[in-house]
Amino acid sequence: MDAVVKKELTVNQVIDMIANVGYSIIKHGGEIHRAEDTATRIGLAYGMDQVHVFAISSTILVTVEKDGVTKTQNRRVTGNSTNLDRIEQLNSLSRKICTELPSYQEVMAELRRIEGRHCYSQGMNVLFYALIGGSFAVFFGGGVAEMIVGFSVGALMRLVIWLLEYLKSASFLVNTVGAAIIVTTVKLASLVYPALNVDASISGPLMNLVPGILLTNCIRDIVSADYVAGTAKMIETLIVACSIALGVAVSVLWR
């Protein structure tokens, strides 16, 4: 049974499938290791003689070989954003591919279904930013006042970021403007309410921008020997940190 299904897929179809699955995993913030591993497994499951996958966060390169025929495909990955729901769905899809060996059309239909899955709305995202701001303000030693400030500043910042993203602004500018908004509004609030813990109220909403997960993933990539992917993330972390620092520099005006 398995041999029949395997024969139906051409090398071209297999490589296309592998490249698409790998692309989606990287685009939605999966680990490099996961993308490479999944792509290799799928290729071998369909009976390819050799599968070679190389991925970094901006590209994936796949080569398969079967009966002396070698094919290579590459996908450029842009606009990466973490979407753990998609990663979860892609994971179960790849598990299904490896055990059931479905047809090419089935896998492509499934990929399209995953790409079309429901995401939280922009309004909900405003709420999430506000929640992150409020909870981290408390977390960093704030009280009720800091929580309220962090909550509303987080929501305000998300609205402005939404506008900037709608205008297709560069992410560097988005971070700078976001940080400047946080610092400015919190300092203004501290003029109205002088007892405000400024450090806690600023760093709470700032957690929305701080590249902490990026930093941790970068070190994880480097330790697990994905040096090129890790170094690229390290530079990205530095650039994000610089863009935030530029926004925080507005605070110098209050001295």
Binding site: L84, E88, S203, I213
Partner: peptide, 27 residues
Amino acid sequence: PITVYLVPGIVPLVPGLTIYKAMEACL
């Protein structure tokens, strides 16, 4: 996949206040 639990789990340990204070001191 493990990422689903790992990424939100790391968040509270991320040194946000340390980063902010370092930035401000440098500035």
